[in-house]
Structure formats: structure tokens, C-alpha cells
């Protein structure tokens, strides 16, 4: 994917929360560049600072140090009233949807347009267009309480897109939804990224969300950025400890298998019909124990990884590594 201009630049960003007798560093020395038109993921465990980070991008939280440059504007230098105007070109959606409960779907979508001072007639027209984009035309007069979680998030997306923003910030937008609904919301986000060319920033704690739609990802851990890169690259070869932990989500117990040599085998798009592990066992004439497996079939190709326990004796171990080398199967020893 060819990237264009930088859309959001975070330079030496830091945020400290101070209260009477505590002092919490939520973010420290964050440097990131998010390009126009990409879907950029920010992932971290809860408390890592990712929600604060996304709120610094639209200045809902004012950073303590560093700068946010949005579409070539340094947000630290603009007046409050200008900031309100700038926010109209940054849509945002939330985990809890945050729709106005006393307004129907249509009026919720009109809301940001009202704030922007657009006439009721034009706003309604635009709202109907957006309802079509998110596939909820029949729910125009329904109130949020009458909608399902997925429908509410669709309304929230329509609302966030109303003012034709350049960026859409998604703060754990799918975390309150079931897997099927999550998938449909992610599909919708991918579609609007393609059709509108809008830059999307996705905050999540789920690696699957990142895998599903992001082009690049930043992993944030203990207030700092641990790793940044293309999603495939980070997914195949996570470098930092936190990245490995996230990529192996659900496999945190691997580290508890002490004293054993483990090896991670990466499936980077080999044909799903090739029985990699079985062939290896047959060829090396030594059994291996599969500790963890997370693979999926995408268009007949296998993606994912497995962690296997290596045999005790050195010769068998060497045979396995030799096999993996000669067959060019990406792997690494896990300690």
C-alpha cells in the first residue's frame, strides 16, 4: 500500500496525571507517524496508556510534553475555538457507543452537523446518505435503546463520519461486541477506509482486530511504544516481550513450561494442504509436543503459528532445525 502524506505526527509526546498526592505517567516519549489513508492500530494491555494516547490525538487530553501535528497543524499552538473546529475533521467512536439516548438515529447523526452550524435540511440529507453507508436506513426513527450493540456502533460510525472527517479514531470500538458483530463492524471500517480514503486509528487490546484490518501497528506497553511496524512483520516476528505476549494471546502459559526447549513455527502463507508438522515428525523420526497452535486458513494459505516442545536430545533437536532450515519454514527458538 502506497502511503501519502503524514496525517498525524506525535513527537516526543508525554502525559502525566497529577493529583494531590499521586503522580502517574500515562504516556512517555511517544513518537509516531500515521499516514494519510492507512489503518493504523495501537494495541496494548489495559492500563498501558492507549486510551490516553488516542485522546491526546484530538486533544481531549492535553499532552504534558511533546507535540501533536494533525494535517500539518501543531495542535499545541491553536486557540481553543480553533481546536473545536479542527475536531470536526476528526471523528471518534467509542467502546460504549456514547449515542445521545434521547435522540433517534437520524438526529444522532445530525448532531455533529448541528454543532458545525449546518442547516437542518442539509444535515438531514447528509444523515440519510450516511444511514445508507452503514446499512441502517430502516432505523432512522429508532432510538438507541431499541438498537442492538452492533447497530448502535453503526450509528456511531455514521455520526462520526457526518462532518466528512479526515481521520476516524476508534477507541476499543469492538470490545463490547460479540465476534460476529465485531467482524461486521471491522468490515464496515475497512470499506469506509477504501471508499472514503479516511485515515483510521484503531485502539484495541485484541490482536485479532489488528490482524483483521490494520496496515501498521504500534504496540504500547507501560506508557511507551515497544514496537512499531507493518502488521505482518510484527505478527510473524515480534521482537519485544509484550509483542510476543500479544501475538500469543491465549498462550501466556507457554512460559510456564520451564526447562524445556521450545520452538515457534510461523505459517506465513504456505499452502494449507501441506502437512508441515507431520512431515517434520516423519522426516526427523522424533515426536514433538504441540504446546500452542493458532493458525487460520486464508484463501487456501495457512497463516499463524505453533509452538512446539523440542525433544530432549541434541541430535533430534538439530535434525528438526535442519529440517525447518532446508524447507525454509520460518521459526525461532522460544526461551
Amino acid at each position: 500500500m502506497a502511503y501519502h502524506e503524514p496525517m498525524i505526527e506525535l513527537v516526543g509526546l508525554g502525559k502525566t496525571f497529577e493529583s494531590k498526592n499521586s503522580y502517574v505517567k500515562a504516556l512517555e516519549d511517544i513518537n509516531l507517524t500515521i499516514h494519510e489513508g492507512e489503518i493504523f492500530g495501537i494495541i496494548g494491555l489495559s492500563g498501558a496508556g492507549k486510551s490516553t494516547l488516542v485522546r491526546c490525538i484530538n486533544y481531549l487530553e492535553r499532552p504534558t510534553t511533546g507535540r501533536v501535528i494533525f494535517d500539518k497543524i501543531d495542535l499545541s499552538e491553536v486557540q481553543d475555538y480553533e481546536l473545536l473546529k479542527i475536531r470536526q475533521s476528526m471523528g471518534m467512536i467509542f467502546q460504549q457507543f456514547n449515542l445521545l439516548m434521547q435522540r433517534n438515529t437520524l438526529d444522532n447523526i445530525c448532531f455533529p452537523l448541528e454543532i458545525a452550524g449546518i442547516s437542518k435540511r442539509d444535515a438531514t440529507k447528509r444523515a440519510y446518505e450516511l444511514l445508507e453507508v452503514v446499512g441502517l436506513t430502516d432505523k432512522a426513527k429508532a432510538y438507541p435503546a431499541q438498537l442492538s450493540g452492533g447497530q448502535k456502533q453503526r450509528v456511531a460510525i455514521a455520526r462520526a463520519l457526518a462532518t466528512k472527517p479526515k481521520v476516524l479514531l476508534c477507541d476499543e470500538a469492538t470490545s463490547a461486541l460479540d465476534p460476529t458483530t465485531t467482524r461486521s463492524i471491522l468490515d464496515l471500517l475497512r470499506d469506509i477506509n477504501k471508499s472514503l480514503g479516511i485515515t483510521i486509528v484503531v485502539i484495541t487490546h485484541e490482536m485479532s482486530v489488528i490482524e483483521e484490518i490494520c496496515n501498521r501497528v504500534a504496540i504500547i506497553d507501560a506508557s511507551r511504544i515497544a514496537e512499531v511496524g507493518d502488521v505482518e512483520e510484527v505478527f510473524m516476528r515480534p521482537k519485544s516481550k509484550i509483542a510476543k505476549q500479544l501475538v500469543f494471546s491465549g498462550a501466556n502459559h507457554i512460559e510456564s513450561f520451564v526447562g524445556e526447549d521450545k520452538c515457534r513455527i510461523i505459517f506465513d502463507g504456505r499452502t494449507s494442504f501441506e502437512p508441515v508438522i507431520a512431515n517434520m515428525v516423519l522426516e526427523c523420526r522424533t515426536p514433538v509436543n504441540i504446546l500452542f497452535a493458532d493458525t487460520k486458513d486464508i484463501d487456501g494459505k495457512a497463516f499463524g503459528q505453533m509452538v512446539i516442545q523440542l525433544p530432549e536430545d541434541e541430535t533430534s533437536k538439530k535434525r528438526i532445525f535442519a529440517y525447518l532450515e532446508t524447507n525454509k519454514i520460518p521459526h525461532e527458538e522460544v526461551i
Binding site: 475536531r87 470536526q88 471523528g91 467509542f94 449515542l99 445521545l100
Partner: peptide, 10 residues
Amino acid sequence: GIIEAAQSMG
């Protein structure tokens, strides 16, 4: 959250 959403819209 609703107030925050409104703030995010400017």
C-alpha cells in the same frame, strides 16, 4: 462518555 463524544465533535 456522551459528553466526551460531543467534545470529540468540537
